[in-house]
């Protein structure tokens, strides 16, 4: 079993617990053991607190990394923002002067940052540690015929030299993760656009989302799959807002990849918290009634009565 320290961040455990549930359900099936980190704080976020004081931001991020160092484990994140903060901290603290400054602050709480724990985004953990074949083998409900538009978001890929996840101009990790579920990934023309959540005006993200959702509609995708909880919010309540503002019918349900994986691994639709979304991926229900592979212990036909 491969053991990794789990850095859940703020948004997923406190606003989208269904995503955390899906992660804790799916990773063990891929041979990855989750080790919880005690005493972790916000990463801190790379938008707000970083804009107050970068040195404080680095110091708190370094503290979080030392928690994984204590366990002698690499750390993985489920949020692209947390990955950005922790990866950038790991990168910047290769600078000896900066590391000394940060360690001086950490000494106040009896800690020392040593750069012994690598930072991994959960998508690369699955790709590089488990492998796409393990994902494919874990699937009991192949999502055949499901058209999945993909939104990479920004911080998973960029800055590529620091994130070291994939080619930012032509990434493949999400397409491959979706293909492993038996679904068909769709790359819409505006796939590279930002979700706009961090922009402190309304007009820029609204106009950008309008263009982005327009090309998602052109592809007639069944769902829009993403790997970042901040992007998810933009595509759920944000999509409704943009639909109203422009009086256009945008309606592609967003879904966090690990919930889709959990569903494909046999977790009932009604156990995955989709009822809390503005746009519900009801199209998945057709796979629940599909015949299950014979002798599969994850067969769950009798469940699913607590629908919302």
């Amino acid at each position: 079993m491969n053991r990794f320290a789990f850095f859940p961040g703020c948004l997923i455990p406190a606003r989208h617990p269904a995503m955390e549930f899906a992660i804790r359900h799916t990773l063990p099936k891929l041979g990855i053991e989750i080790v919880d980190l005690e005493g972790a704080s916000c990463c801190p976020d790379p938008i707000y607190f970083k804009s107050k004081d970068k040195l404080s931001w680095l110091s708190v991020a370094a503290r979080n990394l030392t928690l994984a160092e204590d366990l002698g484990l690499d750390i993985f994140t489920n949020c692209s923002g947390c990955t950005a903060t922790l990866s950038e901290t790991y990168h910047l603290l290769e600078d000896e002067t900066l590391r000394a400054q940060v360690n001086e602050r950490l000494s106040k709480i009896g800690r020392t940052y040593q750069a012994t724990s690598r930072v991994r985004h959960i998508a690369t953990l699955v790709r590089d540690v488990a492998g796409y074949d393990a994902v494919r083998e874990s699937v009991v409900r192949p999502l055949e015929g499901l058209k999945v538009a993909i939104h990479y978001g920004c911080h998973l890929l960029k800055p590529s030299r620091i994130m070291q996840v994939d080619d930012p101009n032509n990434p493949t990790v999400m397409e491959n993760l979706v293909t492993a579920l038996g679904a068909t990934p769709v790359r819409h023309r505006n796939w590279y656009l930002c979700c706009g959540k961090a922009c402190q005006t309304e007009q820029v993200p609204d106009d950008m989302m309008h263009d982005l959702l327009g090309t998602v509609n052109e592809e007639e995708a069944d769902i829009l799959c993403m790997i970042c909880p901040t992007c998810f919010g933009q595509f759920d309540h944000g999509q409704m807002k943009v639909s109203r503002k422009f009086d256009e019918d945008f309606h592609t349900p967003p879904i966090y990849y690990f919930q889709l994986l959990a569903f494909a691994q046999g977790v009932p639709y009604d156990k995955l918290g989709f009822e809390r979304q503005r746009f519900k991926p009801e199209c998945l229900r057709r796979f629940e009634t599909a015949p299950q592979p014979a002798g599969d212990p994850a067969h769950t036909g009798a469940q699913g009565k607590n629908s919302a």
């Binding site: 920004c154 922009c199 402190q200």
Partner: peptide, 11 residues
């Protein structure tokens, strides 16, 4: 504050 923090410029 209009910056979206997308990191394209960094890239």
């Amino acid at each position: 504050w209009q910056c979206t923090n997308c990191y394209n410029c960094h890239e």
